[in-house]
Amino acid sequence: MVRASLRVGLLALAFALATAAFGWWSVALLGAVWGGVAVVASRPGVTAGVAAGVGWVVLLAVTAAQGPVWDLAQRVGGVLALPGWLVPVVTVAFGVLLGGSAAELAVGARTWRGIGGGGVND
């Protein structure tokens, strides 16, 4: 449990750093890498999704410490015809799905190529 949490924490940090350094799309890249190499983790897709979500929540929290993120969410929500509270939810969900689906895809590709490890079997 501790090791799993640590794994998610480290992966979340990696997702956060990659996003800050390269942009949102790096979450997909990192998720795919994780899915391709994570032989010890169970459900690497879920792990990657959760970690990406946590990473993005951290980035939003850092931003919130510097400025009025809630007010911003209301304004953006107005533009996108969404309730303000939904904007951060959609943002984090975007990261979760991006990281998770990329990892899941990489796991699947690995399995099909017959090089799967124990962690990827149902």
């Binding site: 939003l60 931003t63 510097q66 400025g67 993120v69 911003l72 975007f94």
Partner: peptide, 23 residues
Amino acid sequence: SLPAVGRLLDPWSGVWSVATTAH
């Protein structure tokens, strides 16, 4: 009429960063 969502919602350099220049 929606912008590219990835760049818009990027939690670091997307629209969220606008909050950091509010003051």
